[in-house]
Design a protein around this nucleic acid. Structure first.
Lengths: 345, 345
DNA sequence: CCCGCTAATGATAGCGCTAACAGTGAAAAC
DNA sequence: GTTTTCACTGTTAGCGCTATCATTAGCGGG
């Protein structure tokens, strides 16, 4: 801890400073800096030079208040650390890039009350739109969203009723589809491994519900299940798989609630020399990039995260002029990626 | 795309609406909503009830302009998708939680000009402080930061001169330390595998420089090197390792610029039945959680990301009253985690 | 030579909130 | 009874910018 360069104490610069330095009115400076209205080339050059020389940075707070326009789009997601939301963010950022809108991220940690705070905080900055992960919110959150008077897009789940618009896949249907593929491949003693329920991960829950529905429709039911929470997902997948297979050696398929624990399980099975997918099959969910590097490719189901981000951002940016002004519903079709861990049909 | 509940067109509520609904002045409403100054219990209750009933959300734009205070802390990082920045964010968020400050993330994609834009955008919202990853910025960025008049903390690298404060580890030293451990363990034909240089990943570059310095000091030099860019890091690690070992079968140590490609390499080596760490040793960098689930634990070096986030946030929040007002320098000591892929000394 | 027009610039009035100060009434002190 | 005090509430004046309208100069046409 030593002393370095202490920043000089500065009164923050305002339009007036630039205006005085360039000999024109504040209004003209404002016009130059925003490229709005007619300004002569010479004035423009003089103003820009002065602004640059002084190191002027406009005050958007004042600008936003005066113009009643804020170029921000709030994005409320449960977590940054599980690889799935960053990809949605990529889609959002890319789409917003050429619209002058800027995404602002808030993280709710899968907690309803935290989400409520984040939404409140975001709305208090009067953004141009809000993208929220999931359809399940506290009553207060839902009320705020409905009242906000801006486009709201709920993403990554469409099994429910949106406040305004929604974009994503049906997790219930994704679970069903996976179960059908597994059954069709001839597996019968199927177990589930996932995050500890009931968490507030509604999407994982719906997936499992859909999965069990499809099993039931085929006269089957889950043979066993194993849950975890916290820790390294890869390591947990490994442990859970070992535990479960020790308990029920007859199981012939392991359905994981996400790819990370699935990858852990796959590594364990391969180490044990188990015949995958002959003796036992495995499948995860999400289609994370990581899987490409595994010794064998885990069967999974793509959640269309990039597309979801893109479509959500398009709705906010008004790029998707379908005539409808709000309340759009866009469903993507999750694609099964059979990989190498499920028998060929 | 169907029609759902269209949000009713609302004129946004203001303090005046709440004030009229509760029969007190706007000022009193403001006081209640901010818990500031003396307000009688009965008035407070009336105001809160009215605010709640109307669904009032304060306008922070106006509040910030009037009070000249913004409870935002800008965080500028190169990427969200490589697992390392989310952990820094965790440290920042947790530390800021009870200070009333809110982190706002901006992503620069390892591009200098993009970083400049993001910094400009952030500063234009007049945040209470700014946390920026790295010490290398464009001249314009550096000037803006120096002028901003708010605490600036550059993180994750201390090999250079900060604008104001800096927190992190010395990557040069981390590279050196790893090289020394490898040499001490008796490895002599050492190769490097990493991201394609020169990227704008200055930290990886400095690590390699330190690494080569230490090799040189022991009379050694890199036997070979291999670079990649883009794609699944795990898969790339696998490919690069194969390529490199086919080219130079005599190599006895592989130093990876990050854990993800290291993990890919490790998986490949194990599949090939190579004797790790006897015949060949491996090491990565970063200490990602993922590694815990691998069949063998990759040697790595912890970058103290959580601590870095915490300390940076503390500086901004003024929690670290070391007497010094700015220009703090906090260095963390990267810890070697030998794992199972480097011979015991 | 005046009119009408356009291009360029300036003056004025807020945006919705809060800091700072100015009351107000009732209880406490003299 | 009068003054002081204190707890509470209201009034005023901006914060730094932009929307809107007003003004000026320049210029070609009749």
């Amino acid at each position: 801890m030593t002393k370095a360069t202490p920043p000089e104490p500065h009164r923050a610069l305002t339009l007036r400073d630039v205006s005085e330095a360039s000999g024109v009115s504040e209004m003209t400076v404002s016009r130059v800096l925003r490229n709005r209205g007619d300004v002569s080339e010479t004035t423009r050059a003089r103003v820009l030079e002065a602004a640059r020389r002084l190191g002027y940075v406009p005050n958007k707070i004042a600008g936003a208040l005066a113009s009643q326009r804020v170029n921000l789009v709030g994005v409320v997601i449960p977590s940054l650390s599980n690889m799935v939301f960053p990809e949605v963010m990529t889609g959002i950022s890319k789409t917003l890039e050429d619209t002058g809108l800027q995404p602002v991220v808030g993280v709710s940690n899968y907690q309803v009350d935290r989400e409520e705070q984040v939404i409140y905080e975001m709305l208090s900055w009067r953004p141009s739109g809000l993208i929220v992960a999931g359809l399940e919110h506290s009553a207060a959150s839902a009320a705020m969203l409905a009242q906000a008077g801006i486009p709201i897009v709920e993403i990554m789940d469409i099994d429910g009723t949106p406040v305004d618009s929604m974009v994503g896949i049906s997790h219930r249907r994704a679970g069903r589809k996976m179960a059908e593929a597994i059954i069709a491949a001839g597996y019968r003693k199927i177990a589930f491994l996932g995050t500890h329920m009931p968490t507030n991960d509604h999407r994982a829950r719906k997936r499992l519900e859909g999965f069990e529905e499809a099993l039931a429709a085929a006269g089957l039911s889950l043979v066993d299940r194993e849950f975890y929470s916290g820790g390294s997902a890869l390591a947990k997948g490994r442990e859970m798989t070992e535990t479960l297979l020790k308990r029920r050696p007859d199981v012939d398929f392991l359905y994981y609630s996400n790819d990370m624990i699935g990858a852990g399980g796959l590594l364990w099975c391969l180490e044990q020399g188990l015949d995958v997918p002959g003796r036992i099959g495995l499948a995860g969910f999400n289609g994370v990039e990581l899987l490409d590097g595994l010794p064998r490719r885990l069967a999974t189901m793509d959640a269309c995260r990039l597309e979801t981000g893109v479509a959500a951002a398009e709705i906010i940016a008004g790029k998707r002029s379908s005539g409808v002004i709000g309340g759009e519903v866009i469903e993507f079709e999750p694609k099964l990626q059979p990989g190498d861990t499920i028998r060929n049909l």
